[in-house]
Design a protein around this nucleic acid. Structure first.
Lengths: 139, 139
DNA sequence: TTAAATTCCGACCGAAATAGTAGGGAATGA
DNA sequence: TCATTCCCTACTATTTCGGTCGGAATTTAA
Protein backbone atom coordinates (compact mmCIF):
# COMPACT_ATOMS: atom_id res chain seq x y z
CA UNK A 1 0.00 0.00 0.00
CA UNK A 2 2.01 2.89 -1.24
CA UNK A 3 1.84 5.99 -3.28
CA UNK A 4 3.77 6.52 -6.47
CA UNK A 5 6.83 8.70 -6.61
CA UNK A 6 5.03 11.27 -8.69
CA UNK A 7 3.39 12.96 -5.77
CA UNK A 8 6.51 12.89 -3.66
CA UNK A 9 8.76 14.18 -6.42
CA UNK A 10 6.21 16.79 -7.29
CA UNK A 11 5.80 18.15 -3.79
CA UNK A 12 9.55 18.29 -3.25
CA UNK A 13 10.09 20.06 -6.54
CA UNK A 14 7.32 22.53 -5.85
CA UNK A 15 8.81 23.21 -2.47
CA UNK A 16 12.08 24.01 -4.21
CA UNK A 17 10.28 26.47 -6.46
CA UNK A 18 8.61 28.07 -3.49
CA UNK A 19 11.97 28.89 -1.92
CA UNK A 20 12.62 31.18 -4.89
CA UNK A 21 9.14 32.55 -5.25
CA UNK A 22 9.22 36.22 -6.28
CA UNK A 23 12.94 35.98 -6.85
CA UNK A 24 13.61 34.09 -10.04
CA UNK A 25 12.78 31.16 -12.26
CA UNK A 26 14.37 27.83 -11.44
CA UNK A 27 15.44 25.46 -14.19
CA UNK A 28 14.68 21.78 -14.30
CA UNK A 29 18.36 21.08 -14.35
CA UNK A 30 18.84 22.85 -11.06
CA UNK A 31 16.01 21.02 -9.36
CA UNK A 32 16.99 17.67 -10.78
CA UNK A 33 20.53 18.10 -9.53
CA UNK A 34 19.53 19.29 -6.10
CA UNK A 35 17.05 16.48 -5.57
CA UNK A 36 18.90 13.80 -7.50
CA UNK A 37 15.92 13.03 -9.67
CA UNK A 38 15.99 12.27 -13.35
CA UNK A 39 15.58 15.49 -15.25
CA UNK A 40 13.59 13.96 -18.08
CA UNK A 41 11.20 12.41 -15.62
CA UNK A 42 10.72 15.64 -13.71
CA UNK A 43 10.00 17.27 -17.02
CA UNK A 44 6.92 15.15 -17.46
CA UNK A 45 5.67 16.01 -14.01
CA UNK A 46 6.22 19.71 -14.66
CA UNK A 47 4.30 19.46 -17.87
CA UNK A 48 1.34 18.21 -15.87
CA UNK A 49 1.76 20.82 -13.17
CA UNK A 50 1.79 23.49 -15.82
CA UNK A 51 -1.39 22.18 -17.42
CA UNK A 52 -2.99 22.39 -14.01
CA UNK A 53 -1.76 25.97 -13.76
CA UNK A 54 0.24 25.48 -10.63
CA UNK A 55 3.41 26.73 -12.28
CA UNK A 56 4.43 29.00 -15.14
CA UNK A 57 7.40 28.59 -17.40
CA UNK A 58 9.92 30.69 -19.23
CA UNK A 59 11.77 29.23 -22.17
CA UNK A 60 15.29 29.83 -23.30
CA UNK A 61 18.48 30.74 -21.53
CA UNK A 62 17.92 31.92 -17.96
CA UNK A 63 14.46 30.43 -18.21
CA UNK A 64 12.83 27.98 -15.89
CA UNK A 65 9.75 27.50 -13.79
CA UNK A 66 7.99 29.58 -11.15
CA UNK A 67 5.00 29.06 -8.95
CA UNK A 68 1.87 30.42 -10.57
CA UNK A 69 0.51 31.50 -7.19
CA UNK A 70 2.01 32.47 -3.86
CA UNK A 71 3.07 29.53 -1.68
CA UNK A 72 0.25 30.06 0.77
CA UNK A 73 -2.26 29.45 -2.00
CA UNK A 74 -0.91 26.10 -3.12
CA UNK A 75 -1.62 23.03 -1.03
CA UNK A 76 -0.02 19.64 -1.05
CA UNK A 77 -3.43 18.35 -2.10
CA UNK A 78 -3.38 20.50 -5.22
CA UNK A 79 -0.07 19.01 -6.24
CA UNK A 80 -0.98 15.45 -5.39
CA UNK A 81 -4.25 15.52 -7.26
CA UNK A 82 -2.63 17.15 -10.26
CA UNK A 83 -0.04 14.41 -10.48
CA UNK A 84 -1.83 11.36 -9.20
CA UNK A 85 -5.40 12.04 -10.10
CA UNK A 86 -8.25 12.12 -7.62
CA UNK A 87 -8.08 9.99 -4.55
CA UNK A 88 -10.38 7.07 -5.05
CA UNK A 89 -9.97 4.10 -2.86
CA UNK A 90 -13.09 2.54 -4.25
CA UNK A 91 -14.97 3.17 -7.47
CA UNK A 92 -18.04 3.10 -5.29
CA UNK A 93 -17.04 6.27 -3.48
CA UNK A 94 -16.06 8.80 -6.08
CA UNK A 95 -18.18 7.58 -8.96
CA UNK A 96 -21.68 8.34 -10.07
CA UNK A 97 -24.51 8.36 -7.60
CA UNK A 98 -26.44 5.74 -9.47
CA UNK A 99 -23.82 3.10 -9.03
CA UNK A 100 -25.78 -0.09 -8.74
CA UNK A 101 -24.68 -1.88 -5.67
CA UNK A 102 -26.45 -5.16 -5.17
CA UNK A 103 -23.75 -6.65 -3.02
CA UNK A 104 -24.79 -5.89 0.51
CA UNK A 105 -21.36 -6.25 2.05
CA UNK A 106 -19.86 -3.79 -0.38
CA UNK A 107 -22.36 -1.19 0.65
CA UNK A 108 -21.42 -1.78 4.24
CA UNK A 109 -17.73 -1.29 3.55
CA UNK A 110 -18.23 1.61 1.20
CA UNK A 111 -18.34 4.13 4.00
CA UNK A 112 -14.95 2.97 5.16
CA UNK A 113 -13.26 4.04 1.95
CA UNK A 114 -15.06 7.31 2.02
CA UNK A 115 -13.87 7.97 5.52
CA UNK A 116 -10.30 7.12 4.59
CA UNK A 117 -10.51 9.31 1.50
CA UNK A 118 -11.79 12.21 3.50
CA UNK A 119 -9.11 11.92 6.13
CA UNK A 120 -6.36 11.89 3.52
CA UNK A 121 -7.82 14.89 1.77
CA UNK A 122 -8.18 16.78 5.00
CA UNK A 123 -4.53 16.32 5.75
CA UNK A 124 -3.12 17.23 2.36
CA UNK A 125 -5.49 20.11 1.78
CA UNK A 126 -4.41 21.75 4.97
CA UNK A 127 -0.71 21.90 4.24
CA UNK A 128 0.42 24.73 1.97
CA UNK A 129 3.84 25.32 0.52
CA UNK A 130 4.11 28.28 2.85
CA UNK A 131 3.68 25.95 5.80
CA UNK A 132 6.60 23.92 4.55
CA UNK A 133 8.74 27.00 4.10
CA UNK A 134 7.97 28.18 7.63
CA UNK A 135 8.65 24.77 8.99
CA UNK A 136 12.04 24.53 7.37
CA UNK A 137 13.08 27.93 8.56
CA UNK A 138 12.22 27.07 12.14
CA UNK A 139 14.07 23.77 12.03
CA UNK B 1 -4.12 7.58 -6.44
CA UNK B 2 -5.98 4.50 -5.52
CA UNK B 3 -5.81 1.35 -3.54
CA UNK B 4 -5.81 -2.11 -5.03
CA UNK B 5 -8.84 -4.33 -4.92
CA UNK B 6 -7.15 -6.69 -2.51
CA UNK B 7 -8.05 -4.69 0.54
CA UNK B 8 -11.58 -4.07 -0.61
CA UNK B 9 -12.23 -7.67 -1.55
CA UNK B 10 -10.64 -8.80 1.66
CA UNK B 11 -12.69 -6.57 3.92
CA UNK B 12 -15.91 -7.54 2.16
CA UNK B 13 -15.10 -11.21 2.39
CA UNK B 14 -14.15 -10.94 6.03
CA UNK B 15 -17.38 -9.15 6.70
CA UNK B 16 -19.18 -12.07 5.13
CA UNK B 17 -17.37 -14.46 7.45
CA UNK B 18 -18.24 -12.34 10.42
CA UNK B 19 -21.94 -12.69 9.72
CA UNK B 20 -21.55 -16.42 10.39
CA UNK B 21 -19.13 -16.15 13.27
CA UNK B 22 -19.80 -18.85 15.89
CA UNK B 23 -22.27 -20.48 13.51
CA UNK B 24 -20.41 -22.30 10.79
CA UNK B 25 -17.62 -22.29 8.27
CA UNK B 26 -18.21 -20.53 5.00
CA UNK B 27 -16.74 -21.88 1.79
CA UNK B 28 -14.91 -19.84 -0.79
CA UNK B 29 -17.49 -20.83 -3.32
CA UNK B 30 -20.24 -19.30 -1.26
CA UNK B 31 -18.41 -16.02 -0.75
CA UNK B 32 -17.33 -15.80 -4.36
CA UNK B 33 -20.90 -16.28 -5.53
CA UNK B 34 -22.37 -13.82 -3.10
CA UNK B 35 -19.86 -11.12 -3.89
CA UNK B 36 -19.35 -11.95 -7.53
CA UNK B 37 -15.61 -12.22 -7.15
CA UNK B 38 -13.41 -14.77 -8.83
CA UNK B 39 -13.06 -17.75 -6.56
CA UNK B 40 -9.47 -18.49 -7.54
CA UNK B 41 -8.49 -14.92 -6.81
CA UNK B 42 -10.22 -14.88 -3.44
CA UNK B 43 -8.35 -18.08 -2.66
CA UNK B 44 -5.06 -16.24 -2.83
CA UNK B 45 -6.29 -13.53 -0.52
CA UNK B 46 -7.53 -16.09 1.96
CA UNK B 47 -4.22 -17.85 1.91
CA UNK B 48 -2.64 -14.58 3.03
CA UNK B 49 -5.29 -13.91 5.63
CA UNK B 50 -4.71 -17.35 7.03
CA UNK B 51 -0.97 -16.84 7.25
CA UNK B 52 -1.68 -13.69 9.20
CA UNK B 53 -3.90 -15.72 11.49
CA UNK B 54 -7.01 -13.72 10.87
CA UNK B 55 -8.96 -16.76 9.74
CA UNK B 56 -8.90 -20.52 10.22
CA UNK B 57 -9.79 -23.14 7.68
CA UNK B 58 -11.40 -26.53 7.52
CA UNK B 59 -10.75 -28.75 4.53
CA UNK B 60 -13.04 -31.17 2.83
CA UNK B 61 -16.75 -31.34 2.31
CA UNK B 62 -18.64 -28.99 4.62
CA UNK B 63 -15.37 -27.20 5.15
CA UNK B 64 -14.60 -23.54 4.70
CA UNK B 65 -13.25 -20.57 6.57
CA UNK B 66 -14.01 -18.93 9.89
CA UNK B 67 -12.76 -15.86 11.68
CA UNK B 68 -9.90 -16.72 14.00
CA UNK B 69 -11.09 -14.11 16.49
CA UNK B 70 -14.38 -12.51 17.38
CA UNK B 71 -15.45 -9.69 15.04
CA UNK B 72 -14.81 -7.02 17.64
CA UNK B 73 -11.14 -8.02 17.75
CA UNK B 74 -10.48 -7.69 14.03
CA UNK B 75 -10.07 -4.25 12.55
CA UNK B 76 -10.20 -3.12 8.96
CA UNK B 77 -6.57 -2.09 9.46
CA UNK B 78 -5.61 -5.67 10.30
CA UNK B 79 -7.11 -6.87 7.06
CA UNK B 80 -5.71 -4.10 4.93
CA UNK B 81 -2.20 -4.46 6.23
CA UNK B 82 -2.33 -8.22 5.84
CA UNK B 83 -3.32 -7.94 2.21
CA UNK B 84 -1.64 -4.78 1.05
CA UNK B 85 1.41 -4.62 3.25
CA UNK B 86 2.25 -1.75 5.54
CA UNK B 87 1.17 1.69 4.57
CA UNK B 88 4.24 3.49 3.34
CA UNK B 89 3.71 6.56 1.32
CA UNK B 90 7.40 7.28 1.42
CA UNK B 91 10.35 5.00 2.09
CA UNK B 92 11.57 7.81 4.27
CA UNK B 93 8.75 7.35 6.74
CA UNK B 94 8.53 3.71 7.59
CA UNK B 95 12.15 2.76 7.05
CA UNK B 96 15.14 2.67 9.31
CA UNK B 97 15.90 5.59 11.54
CA UNK B 98 19.34 6.08 10.05
CA UNK B 99 18.03 6.83 6.61
CA UNK B 100 20.49 9.28 5.20
CA UNK B 101 18.60 12.20 3.94
CA UNK B 102 20.83 14.81 2.39
CA UNK B 103 18.09 16.35 0.33
CA UNK B 104 16.71 19.11 2.46
CA UNK B 105 13.38 19.36 0.72
CA UNK B 106 12.67 15.68 1.19
CA UNK B 107 13.14 16.05 4.89
CA UNK B 108 10.67 18.89 4.88
CA UNK B 109 8.07 16.88 3.02
CA UNK B 110 8.71 13.71 4.96
CA UNK B 111 6.45 14.75 7.77
CA UNK B 112 3.60 15.15 5.32
CA UNK B 113 3.63 11.49 4.41
CA UNK B 114 3.87 10.53 8.02
CA UNK B 115 0.85 12.63 8.82
CA UNK B 116 -1.13 11.10 5.99
CA UNK B 117 -0.05 7.62 7.02
CA UNK B 118 -1.13 8.23 10.57
CA UNK B 119 -4.49 9.57 9.59
CA UNK B 120 -5.22 6.57 7.39
CA UNK B 121 -4.17 4.18 10.11
CA UNK B 122 -6.27 5.95 12.67
CA UNK B 123 -9.35 5.51 10.55
CA UNK B 124 -8.88 1.87 9.62
CA UNK B 125 -7.68 0.79 13.04
CA UNK B 126 -10.81 2.12 14.63
CA UNK B 127 -13.30 0.15 12.60
CA UNK B 128 -13.86 -3.45 13.63
CA UNK B 129 -15.87 -6.10 11.87
CA UNK B 130 -18.31 -5.84 14.72
CA UNK B 131 -18.86 -2.19 13.89
CA UNK B 132 -19.74 -3.19 10.35
CA UNK B 133 -22.15 -5.82 11.57
CA UNK B 134 -23.89 -3.37 13.86
CA UNK B 135 -24.03 -0.79 11.14
CA UNK B 136 -25.65 -3.14 8.68
CA UNK B 137 -28.25 -4.27 11.19
CA UNK B 138 -29.26 -0.72 11.93
CA UNK B 139 -29.54 0.22 8.26
C1' DT C 1 -14.57 -47.49 -0.06
C1' DT C 2 -15.68 -44.35 -3.18
C1' DA C 3 -17.27 -39.83 -4.72
C1' DA C 4 -17.92 -35.15 -3.97
C1' DA C 5 -16.58 -31.09 -1.80
C1' DT C 6 -13.37 -28.35 -0.24
C1' DT C 7 -8.80 -26.21 1.02
C1' DC C 8 -3.96 -25.92 -0.44
C1' DC C 9 -0.18 -24.80 -3.55
C1' DG C 10 2.63 -23.28 -7.29
C1' DA C 11 2.97 -21.83 -11.82
C1' DC C 12 1.54 -18.95 -15.31
C1' DC C 13 -0.51 -14.80 -17.89
C1' DG C 14 -2.24 -10.43 -20.10
C1' DA C 15 -2.99 -5.66 -19.14
C1' DA C 16 -1.92 -1.64 -16.98
C1' DA C 17 0.86 1.42 -14.33
C1' DT C 18 5.42 2.97 -12.85
C1' DA C 19 9.56 5.05 -13.49
C1' DG C 20 12.03 6.23 -16.40
C1' DT C 21 14.98 7.18 -21.51
C1' DA C 22 15.75 9.21 -25.87
C1' DG C 23 15.58 12.47 -29.44
C1' DG C 24 14.31 16.32 -31.69
C1' DG C 25 11.97 20.91 -32.07
C1' DA C 26 11.03 25.69 -30.67
C1' DA C 27 11.82 29.80 -28.04
C1' DT C 28 14.93 32.95 -25.71
C1' DG C 29 18.93 35.61 -23.94
C1' DA C 30 23.75 36.84 -24.35
C1' DT D 1 24.69 32.64 -33.80
C1' DC D 2 24.78 29.57 -30.09
C1' DA D 3 24.11 27.76 -25.70
C1' DT D 4 20.32 27.21 -22.80
C1' DT D 5 16.10 26.04 -21.66
C1' DC D 6 11.26 24.42 -22.13
C1' DC D 7 8.19 21.46 -25.07
C1' DC D 8 6.48 17.22 -27.08
C1' DT D 9 6.19 12.50 -28.56
C1' DA D 10 7.54 8.05 -28.56
C1' DC D 11 9.76 4.15 -26.64
C1' DT D 12 11.12 0.74 -22.86
C1' DA D 13 12.09 -2.15 -18.85
C1' DT D 14 10.13 -3.56 -14.61
C1' DT D 15 6.65 -4.29 -11.43
C1' DT D 16 2.02 -4.76 -9.83
C1' DC D 17 -2.70 -6.09 -10.56
C1' DG D 18 -6.15 -9.06 -11.16
C1' DG D 19 -6.86 -13.29 -12.38
C1' DT D 20 -6.56 -18.32 -14.42
C1' DC D 21 -5.24 -23.16 -14.35
C1' DG D 22 -4.14 -27.75 -12.89
C1' DG D 23 -3.50 -30.75 -9.61
C1' DA D 24 -2.66 -32.60 -4.78
C1' DA D 25 -4.33 -33.31 -0.05
C1' DT D 26 -8.02 -33.61 3.25
C1' DT D 27 -12.55 -34.45 4.89
C1' DT D 28 -17.44 -35.78 4.90
C1' DA D 29 -21.24 -38.46 3.41
C1' DA D 30 -23.36 -41.95 0.81
Amino acid sequence: MRLSTKGRYGVSAMYELSTYYDERSVSLKEIAQKQEYSMAYLEQLFSTLKKERLITSQRGAKGGYKLAKPPEKITVGDIMRALEGPIELSECVGGSEDYKCNKSSICVTKDIWKEVNDSINTVIDNITLKDLLDKYKSD
